[in-house]
């Protein structure tokens, strides 16, 4: 870990100012925000992240930790802890896919530490990204290549990959937000703005080092999730080698609105399979207006992987992913989902 300046300003404005003025004459100064620390400290120990200034947001951003549901929109402060949100009664009853995605992630301790915003911005677990002694990583070092292609890549992505990067986005919570069409609120040097959550993460393409559409200095402050006929009938299925405390081999967030067995609306998001949080739009389109059953779910599942590209060790993920979609759809359909 490189030495760094640490500051913990009490207001957001002061946060950024105090963190940067000290180094304004130093062109190598790099600032990073610290929230829960579960990604940052880990990657700093590995020398993957080498900030010269760590600006601790835990005093200044405390105001952004409320959880409110007014009957039409769930507002989640980005600095709320994962565990708090997972255990919140409104979230459990009205947005089960959110509660499940959070409580199936990481461990109780990590969920007590990590904030929602930090969770959304977690970095990939790609082993070649996490070890800087591998020279080839286009995320760490643009243009250097990708060691995972041709390496050990069982955990890598099959969707949204490019010839420059196949690193998986491993988060769980993000899949629930994708499925529920969430939006995020941001504050940054240019002011406040909002964007659809689906616009936050960038597919690797030719620029794997560009992971999000956040502008420099921008902070996620709040997550907005609209209520809808599908939110109560929603579910998160996480498939993994170990029963708990592990990233997904494949995961599926489903939200479903049914009339009888007829699908009036459906949202499907996939985790552990793609380079970014992933919405299976074609699969949804196929199901809308049709009866949900084994056959239609299977057809939708196949559609979701139409563009999948497998590597040497991860072809099975296409099959597991398809099974997980079928399972998630049928389990979600079987849910008791009363308007409450």
């Amino acid at each position: 870990m490189q030495p760094f300046h640490y500051s913990r300003p009490v207001s957001l404005a002061e946060t950024i100012v105090s963190g940067t003025q000290k180094h304004s004459r130093n062109a190598e100064a790099t600032a990073t925000f610290l929230a829960g620390g579960t990604t940052l400290i880990d990657l700093m120990k590995l020398d993957v992240m080498r900030p010269s200034h760590v600006v601790d947001l835990n005093s200044s951003a405390r105001e952004f930790s409320a959880i409110r549901f007014d009957g039409s929109t769930l507002r989640l402060g980005a600095f709320a802890k994962m565990a708090t949100v997972a255990d919140h009664p409104d979230v459990i009853s009205h947005f089960p896919v959110i509660a499940q995605s959070l409580s199936l992630a990481a461990s109780a301790q990590l969920r007590n530490m990590a904030t929602l915003g930090g969770n959304l911005l977690q970095r990939t677990r790609c082993a070649y990204f996490r070890d800087p002694s591998w020279a080839a990583c286009n995320k760490r070092s643009p243009g250097s290549g990708c060691a995972a292609i041709g390496g050990v890549n069982r955990q890598h992505a099959v969707l949204g990959t490019s010839k420059h990067c196949i690193a998986t986005y491993h988060g769980d919570f993000a899949q629930a937000l994708m499925a529920l069409d969430a939006a995020i609120m941001l504050i940054g040097p240019d002011g406040a703005r909002s964007m659809p959550f689906a616009s936050l993460h960038l597919q690797p393409g030719n620029t794997p080092h560009l992971e999000t559409s956040l502008r420099p200095g921008e902070i996620i402050t709040e997550i907005l999730v609209p209520d809808g006929p599908w939110t109560r009938r929603s579910r998160y299925v996480k498939v993994r080698d170990r029963q708990s405390y592990e990233f997904a081999v494949a995961s599926v967030a489903v939200a479903l609105a049914l009339e009888g067995s007829m699908v009036t609306d459906v949202r499907i998001a996939l985790g552990g399979l793609a380079t970014t949080p992933w919405r299976a739009v074609d699969a949804e389109d196929l199901l809308r207006g049709r009866r949900l059953n084994e056959a239609s779910a299977t057809e939708a599942a196949r559609t979701a992987f139409a563009g999948a590209v497998a590597q040497a060790h991860n072809a099975f993920k296409i099959s597991v992913g398809q099974s997980a979609i079928v399972r998630a759809l049928l389990e979600t359909a079987a849910m008791e989902a009363h308007r409450g």
Partner: peptide, 8 residues
């Protein structure tokens, strides 16, 4: 080296 939590 990339986005830290909460920074672009």
């Amino acid at each position: 080296t990339g986005a830290a939590p909460l920074i672009a």
